[in-house]
């Protein structure tokens, strides 16, 4: 036990033992898969039509927003060419499904149905459609454990979308799926309702991906730092379909332009 937590050589042992675990996970996930199958098979014509209409409407809305985003993106890229800031990594994604969760309430981890055979690696970022979910902490042959952003041991580097104030969002202790902003001084400008996006520091999560909404800010003069709570954007307890971010390989990485004007003063 001590050896496993402190040294590396047991990882391969654990990896091979995981082969025996796969059938158990597979059977344990059967009820969920069966209910999905039944949902797919026994669905009425009118339901399908209604869903089709709803999806079409959503597509229209999404396309309109995409237009707005495109104009923003072009403006953004012009600005970035000047400031030479961190680029958004636009990698591909690997679709995955959440098949189980940690049986222990103290650790907020979920099991996904993609593993080393599909190219998952430790530290890979997991996203849901509406926000950041977590990162891979353990890889098995056909499944992996993902530490959620709401785990007390998980710290997400974030920034306030409105003004770029940076902070660290740590999962809240206890049952609530909330985040706590750490080390934010009382003078920093964070308000309830602000959107927190990932800041891209730490190099694990993509930059500017929504993480959480600030729900309360408490400035207690007796405390050193403000007490700020936020709720994750992703529906952590109900989402089943997630994405794993595949970072671009090294030779595809954007190389900083040599001719871009540099305003930094070298020390």
């Amino acid at each position: 036990m001590f050896a496993d937590s402190r040294f590396d050589y047991l990882h391969s042992v654990r990896f091979f033992l995981s082969y025996t675990a796969t059938p158990v996970y597979w059977v344990a996930d059967m009820p969920a898969r069966t209910s999905e199958l039944f949902d797919d098979v026994f669905v009425s014509h009118s339901d399908l039509l209604a869903e089709n209409e709803r999806l079409n409407n959503e597509l229209l809305l999404a396309q309109r927003e995409l237009q707005v985003l495109a104009s923003l993106a072009s403006e953004n890229s012009r600005l970035r060419a000047v400031s030479e800031a961190v680029r958004i990594v636009e990698g591909e994604v690997l679709a995955a499904e959440i098949v189980n969760r940690s049986p222990d309430r103290a650790s907020k981890r979920v099991l996904i149905n993609r593993g080393a055979l599909q190219g998952v690696f430790v530290g890979q970022a997991m996203l849901a459609a509406d926000g950041l979910m977590g990162q891979v902490v353990e890889v098995m042959p056909r499944s992996s454990w993902v530490l959620l952003v709401s785990d007390p041991l998980h710290v997400t580097p974030v920034e306030v979308n409105r003004n770029g104030e940076r902070a660290l969002a740590r999962g809240m202790r206890g049952a609530a799926d909330e985040l706590e902003l750490e080390f934010v001084t009382q003078t920093q400008d964070v308000r309830a309702g602000d959107l927190l996006v990932s800041s891209g520091m730490g190099q694990i999560f993509p930059k500017n991906f929504p993480v959480a909404d600030v729900i309360s800010v408490n400035n207690d003069p007796g405390q050193d730092f403000a007490v700020i709570k936020a709720r994750p954007r992703a529906e952590i307890n109900s989402t089943r379909h997630v994405m794993l971010l595949i970072p671009p390989s090294v030779d595809e990485m954007p190389v900083p332009d040599a001719e871009a004007p540099s305003s930094e003063v070298q020390p």
């Binding site: 036990m1 042992v13 654990r14 033992l17 995981s18 025996t20 049986p103 222990d104 353990e138 098995m140």
Partner: peptide, 16 residues
């Protein structure tokens, strides 16, 4: 040991 693998805990915790 197998339960450790299933739950994703340290190897040897449930074994102990």
């Amino acid at each position: 040991l197998l339960l450790d693998v299933l739950e994703g805990t340290m190897l040897g915790l449930n074994a102990l």
